[in-house]
Write a protein that binds this DNA or RNA. Sequence first.
DNA 1: TTGAAAGCGATACCAC
DNA 2: GTGGTATCGCTTTCAA
Lengths: 342, 342
Amino acid sequence: MSVTIKDIAKAAGVSRGTVDRVLHNRAGVSPDAVKRVREIADAMGFVPNRAGKILAARKQPLKFGCLLPDVGNPFFLDVISGFRKAEAELADYGVSVDICHVRGFDSAAHKKMLEKMASAGYSGICCATVDLPEIQLAIHSLIEEGIPVIAVNTDIPDSGRLCYVGPDYFNAGLTSAAMVALTAEKDLHILVVTGSFHIRGHNDRIRGFFRGLSDHKASYSVIQTIESSDDDEKAYEMTKQILRENEEINCIFIAAAGVEGVCRAVQELGKNSVTIAAFDETEETVKYLKAGLIDFTISQEPELQGYTAVTTLFSYLMSGGIKKPEDFITGTIIKVPENLGR
Amino acid sequence: MSVTIKDIAKAAGVSRGTVDRVLHNRAGVSPDAVKRVREIADAMGFVPNRAGKILAARKQPLKFGCLLPDVGNPFFLDVISGFRKAEAELADYGVSVDICHVRGFDSAAHKKMLEKMASAGYSGICCATVDLPEIQLAIHSLIEEGIPVIAVNTDIPDSGRLCYVGPDYFNAGLTSAAMVALTAEKDLHILVVTGSFHIRGHNDRIRGFFRGLSDHKASYSVIQTIESSDDDEKAYEMTKQILRENEEINCIFIAAAGVEGVCRAVQELGKNSVTIAAFDETEETVKYLKAGLIDFTISQEPELQGYTAVTTLFSYLMSGGIKKPEDFITGTIIKVPENLGR
DNA sequence: TTGAAAGCGATACCAC
DNA sequence: GTGGTATCGCTTTCAA
């Protein structure tokens, strides 16, 4: 059996209350007692018992807030189900999770939501937001108010966030290139469709992709790079036009949403031999994978992201915020029709 | 806040002790009280609080036993690290895990170990063993003694085991075929190297593979099927000879261990254009993936298997063994050099 | 057949 | 500054 507060109290010749005060760096203990308790606790290798903590903590239940740019973006449904799974698992421990929805990636809207969340009484916050200076500042002030923040899906390194939980976008691009190199013709003429030139994840995927092609000594040329703004209609129109004007295109790299639009254009033009590289396991990518238009997609364990973010926040608070948790990088998952959904 | 035993006791006009007795189907309660408590508990939607249970349960700590055929088989190292991870996470809750090592798949040795484990005082057992009648019986008697058993990595359907935690071997074969179809030439001349003709997982992978090739309308012929007994030396000798005698072989499907031997033979003969399909992310497959001899391997989340088996057993016991947990099928994970280790 | 009470480990709060 | 004590939800034991 492991060491308890009671053991320490006895060994130090003080009461459990005093030990608790020392362990939580609370004022009102004589320097002498502080020193003795600290030493004994260290010597005995004290680790607080989670079950006991949790039970005692039920008097002040924990509420977490999760910010998501998910209105109109089905990808985040899986992240949400991860949040909910964690909430269900931690319900006994007095944890509840609020989801705060925002449409798109408008930084003003995100900032406003973060400010609103600051005064909602959350014990911790998970957010998938944009890495821009005003957001970094908003997160900074949350942290100064003592609310820990975890960056989910998109990192915000200079914000003081506790840690990052999400994919390695560069590696996903790299892996996509490996799959293209295995699959496709040697002479690639590529159309790149990105979501936004300003979102780092998209850029990292593209960088990774071309690095990967180089690593594989593939000969390739980029015919054009377009921005879909995650809008299928726009992606459709632009793709169709560009494919008409550039017969030689034999590979389309879709760094973000817009899959439906691109695929529709390809299908209508009957260009079935074009290799399409996509990301994530959404309704659209699944549809076109099954249809055989897309050969593979690279996914990123979205549900695990949501789940891990919440449980990490909980563990952090339960351990008294001693040490910052490590970043959690989710897998680079290759999906072909055969292993969809598993 | 949720319903507690105290709430029920008050509502039913009995003591907490009586409620507890009813909830655990213990004798010594008047039929009248039983009925009332049951009804009220149901009506109020009582769900026992894990933290409370765990804390009270510390007086009788839980010990789990895990049977593994891992002596000489590096694949199981990852499964073990999953067991250890779960143990560390549940240490606060009084859980400890013993690993019982067995060499190979000799059913007599497995049976003996299971019998030994029966009298070691375990509250639950996880086992990766062989699906043979004598083992089924041994597991049956464990269960009759009230020790729940979870099958890890290899299912033993007719044993009364609580559930199965492991991969879908057939799907792994199917997915392997899809990768070969993407990668390789159209006219396949295949050498199949299996571990044992008697292990279902290996057979399922092979079945899945050929089903997948058919689905992809690949034209193929099987030149030969050999049994490596997970022995690299044997695999090396046989592969070398067969490759010499059958120049046309352009694809080797390795359903189990023996990767090192096969690859060495291929390398020595300079047959670098042969497509090799392998399984798992072991030291050997990683080595030959990086060397470019293997294009891809299909992995199965071994660590997650170990982790899930133990946590599932724990949850089951903590919930009072109310309902059998669901099977947990781990992912069919495609690994290329780029996404190794993530 | 039942109730009351003593824990499990950590925390909060009220006395002194 | 400090000790004592009630509490979180559940289990177990001892009396009655």
